Computed example of a mutant assay.
Amino acid sequence: MKALTKRLVEKPWGKDVLPSPFVAPEGMRIGEVWFEPPVEMPDILVKYIFTSEKLSVQVHPSDAQARELGEADRGKEECWLVIDAEPGAKLGVGFRKSLDSVTMRAAALDGSIEDMLAWHPVQAGDFFYIPAGTVHAIGAGVSLIEVQQNSDITYRLYDYGRPRELHLDKGLQVAKGQPHDPALRRNGCLGTTQRLAQGEYFVADAVAGIPSAALRAEYQGPCLVIPLRKNIGLGDIVLEPGDCGLAAGANAVNFDPAGNCLLVRPL
């Protein structure tokens, strides 16, 4: 039972004014807040992302694809829960219609791939699961929680002319040129109890108040607890919104009846 170490990461596309409860240190543009994965759950990474500019159009491989491409790291599946969004904020997830790799390469080279993405207007409470191979981009003005496989592999397909390396050959080998499955996204998830992510590597649940006995029974081993509203107790440890903690199981967590949180466990 412990609070995970928190690390603020500066990014050129980050923000100097963050949504509550976060505060950017004077003169810093914070793009991400990382929580050090505990040894009990080394394969899952939780972080907050804050954007003032559009992030690159990118894709991640699966574990099998990462091995085939000679990567030292595992692949990456991830999910996003939007906690704040400025007017007009959008997430690009999947394509508006199916396209082949030849078309995708040409679009990545001339920049039209940005317009081929399906851009979803977002607000707080929107959720997206991003399977490996899904081409995606986070737009400007978005603050979200990302739960992901603990992997650094990102293949950039387009970066708006910024002077960063692209990874077209590898990226096009793993990218799915198809629309995102609507079953993998939903709205209005804050303040509710529902299963958000049921992937191959982890499960994530939104919890409002005190979870049911059935849900607590599913979280009998090590799990991550992310308070969203009100504090949560882990024994003598108090987690506040903006924190992330490791619990021995849901029965070891002191939930607030008026609170909201995320629970995450490995598979």
Rank of each mutant, 00 (worst) to 15 (best):
G75V: 12
E78T: 13
L81T: 12
L81R: 09
I83A: 11
I83G: 13
L91M: 14
L91Q: 05
V93P: 01
R96P: 02
K97H: 07
K97P: 04
S98Q: 14
S98M: 13
D100E: 12
V102I: 15
V102P: 13
M104P: 12
M104V: 14
A106P: 11
A107V: 05
A107Y: 03
D110A: 13
M116A: 14
M116K: 15
L117C: 14
W119M: 05
P121C: 07
G125E: 02
D126V: 00
F127C: 03
F127K: 04
F128W: 00
I130M: 09
P131G: 07
G133K: 10
G133L: 07
T134H: 07
A140K: 10
G141I: 01
G141A: 13
V142L: 00
Q148C: 01
S151F: 00
I153K: 01
T154Y: 08
T154R: 02
T154D: 07
L157Y: 03
L157K: 00
Y158Q: 11
D159I: 05
P163I: 11
H167Q: 11
K170F: 10
G171E: 08
G171Q: 07
L172G: 09
L172T: 11
L172I: 10
V174M: 10
V174C: 08
V174A: 12
K176A: 14
P179R: 11
P182R: 00
P182D: 05
A183P: 08
L190T: 06
T192I: 08
T193E: 09
Q194R: 15
Q194N: 13
Q194W: 10
R195P: 13
R195K: 15
L196T: 00
E200N: 11
F202N: 11
D205V: 10
A206P: 05
V207T: 06
G209H: 08
I210A: 03
P211F: 06
P211H: 01
P211G: 04
P211K: 03
